[in-house]
Amino acid sequence: MGFELNGKSYETDEDGYLIDLTDWSEDVAAYLADTEEIPELGEKHWQIINFLRGYYEEYQIAPMIKILIKAIMKDMDLSKRDASKMLYELYPAGPAKQACKIAGLPKPTGCV
């Protein structure tokens, strides 16, 4: 499985998650967003992607949704309800599925 972008080929799993996390770039993110039917990554999309990547770099796993929502509350000065609403407006299929995939994070497995 995989895709080609600007003359380079990228390997993905069956659901389109990057296999090699070092393959990620902003262009790859835009491509993956397109496959998720998010045509345009705006500033708020990027804030979330950047938070996910930063967290992953430090902890080698995606953050719990709770942590992600708290980060949005802080960064965007929102209430919990509004932060959660915004997250699902930006990534309608859910942060775990869409945002993590676009940010180049692997899919968690186990009792999840």
Partner: peptide, 27 residues
């Protein structure tokens, strides 16, 4: 197999490393 490999390496299915485990509990 992915959880089994993770558990074999880190002690848990999700592959949570010690510093992450501690940080999450603290959160």
């Amino acid at each position: 197999m992915d959880p089994v490999a993770n558990c074999n390496r880190t002690g848990n299915h999700l592959g949570i490393e010690p510093h992450t485990f501690k940080r999450v509990i603290e959160t």
